[in-house]
Nucleic acid binder design. Structure first.
Lengths: 190, 190
DNA sequence: GGGTGCATGTAATGGGTTACATGATTCT
DNA sequence: AGAATCATGTAACCCATTACATGCACCC
């Protein structure tokens, strides 16, 4: 009877709370702003907007411009805002993340250390890349959104990413050192 | 044409590489050993074992014991081991984790700081708890599995958890301090 | 003429959890 | 008598991605 979960409609409401948007805009927004901890595909967005509209939580207005394709602009209603706040106040549902890297590593003894090493290295690279992005968007936000009341919250999510990626880099380096040790031990025995 | 994903059968093969097990055993194993980064439900395990058996990657033997319910013991075949190694060698497919806490925080300006603070606090508590578990199981593994060739790999996954939770605790403390600051600013203005 | 970006949507498919259904044994 | 643990499995449902389908405008 309790469903719980279903955060996609809430994500949509959240994004529309920043201003009216089309489904296409939402997709771009997701990629540019919350992309490092959230994803939404068109297959979720368009049907999601439709059902939110049917529930009266958002309103649709079709915008016609010569020379450009029609845009369906959605804006959040008062009821939608209430629903969003309700969800924000509800406790965070935590479920176990499935981390494929760790699953492979857990069974790593079945393959050579170099295979496992490669997995760790590519993980390290993606976190190095992510760190750069976090720092850059942090700067950009502080510059462009200096007076936005949401700025602090946005920086918190960025900071989360910073801490996470920094910790992962540390772990990667330690793990690579461990592989070195394992390999030199193996060589000594030969 | 390329499906990619579908890691459940590989997880099952991995667990069975540690020794013959029933579906029930596997569930327990998942919870006790890889539970901090993986989950499998009966609804995945039993059908999964069935199709692995149909593909010849595992073998089923029914064990009958007086006074106890029948157990379907599954063991990995040679072909299954090969398939497992193939998967282990394939690159890790990384997808964006959906972190509900961050989604709520991103839209945090719509509710009071105390609501957001509560979310962060309960996150902090769960990581404190997790850290304790990591340290305890680390000790236990070093004691009980001192000669297991997989020990190093298991400790790597634990270490991942340690680093992650430690970083999250740091982030939580910083974020809580930020809330303090926001609230004292608000008071000063009143 | 062809690629890219804007724009909307659906259908197929996959992957997963939860609830349901059943039943024995052991411990309290 | 009743709860907990062992044990197996299915069905309903939910959530999500990917591929498909369409089409215009702008730039090279």
């Amino acid at each position: 009877m309790k469903r719980e979960g279903a955060s996609t409609p809430n994500a949509l409401l959240g994004l529309l709370s920043l201003g009216p948007m089309s489904g296409y805009d939402i997709r771009q927004m997701v990629l540019r702003t919350i992309g490092h901890f959230w994803s939404e595909s068109y297959g979720q967005i368009y049907p999601g907007l439709k059902s939110l509209a049917a529930a009266g939580l958002v309103e649709k207005k079709t915008e016609r411009k010569k020379g450009k394709p029609d845009r369906n602009l959605y804006s959040i209603t008062l009821e939608g805002r209430e629903r969003l706040q309700e969800w924000l106040r509800a406790p965070v549902s935590e479920d176990v993340a499935r981390i494929e890297l760790l699953l492979k590593l857990f069974f790593g003894a079945h393959v050579s250390t170099s295979v496992n090493r490669e997995h760790v290295i590519s993980n390290m690279e993606s976190h190095q890349q992510a760190l750069k992005v976090y720092l850059a968007t942090g700067k950009q936000l502080r510059r462009d959104k200096a007076n936005d009341p949401s700025l602090r919250y946005w920086l918190m999510t960025l900071n989360y990413g910073r801490h996470h990626s920094a910790a992962m880099l540390k772990w990667c380096r330690e793990t690579l050192a461990e592989f070195d040790e394992m390999e030199s031990k193996r060589k000594r025995r030969q």
